[in-house]
């Protein structure tokens, strides 16, 4: 996987926003290539991944569609995907817009927002727009590479077609 997350800090470009944009792009590529096993590694060890709807997000309601606090819960999601959950096989294609970003020198964090569209491709060949929305990210260094400390996925629609098992 061509990913900045494996890149040691010494080789980084030194531009945190550029690296954060690469992290955001790499994440989408990894999910689209079926590299779900790598998914937890995109996050800091105590990172948060939360999928919710715009309606919940704007109302400040805490329950959305998926919530992982810490990499352990993400690893459990991956294991459940492989061994427990049953669903019709499918893949995604993410189109992620270029993020707006701001870098806070004091905390070393990049805060980013990017829009996404995800097309879902079923094994029957059926393709359809599955989700649109925005990623709200807080990105920071851990173990020499940039990772998501928080990734909130705000889906525009309240509605999920069939089910959601592969993270967006």
């Amino acid at each position: 996987m061509p990913s900045v997350i494996e890149k040691p800090a010494a080789q980084s470009s030194g531009d945190p926003c550029r690296e954060a944009a690469e992290l955001i792009a790499s994440y989408g590529h990894a999910m689209d290539d079926g590299e779900i096993d790598l998914w937890p590694q995109f996050f800091t060890s105590n990172g948060i991944y939360h999928i919710t709807t715009r309606e919940n997000h704007e109302a400040g309601l805490p329950i959305g569609i998926m919530r992982c606090v810490g990499r352990g819960m993400m690893i459990d999601r991956v294991k459940a995907f492989h061994t427990a959950n049953i669903f019709e096989p499918h893949t995604y294609n993410h189109i992620v817009g270029y993020p707006t970003m701001s870098y806070d020198k004091a905390s070393g964090c990049v805060t980013a927002r990017s829009n996404f569209q995800v097309v879902r491709i079923m094994e029957t060949g059926r393709m359809e727009l599955y989700a649109t929305g925005k990623y709200l990210d807080v990105i920071q260094q851990e173990g020499g590479s940039l990772k998501f400390r928080e990734r909130v996925v705000v889906m525009d629609s309240r509605n999920v077609d069939i089910l959601l098992v592969v993270p967006l």
Binding site: I65, R67, V160
Partner: peptide
């Protein structure tokens, strides 16, 4: 208690770890 309810919401719903299969099985 709210936090426990929030985390346990992962068990059900469209992405429910325990029951997401119900989204496709009836189909």
């Amino acid at each position: 208690q709210s936090q426990m309810r929030i985390m346990q919401s992962n068990l059900t719903g469209a992405a429910g770890l325990v029951s997401l299969e119900d989204g496709c099985i009836n189909e």
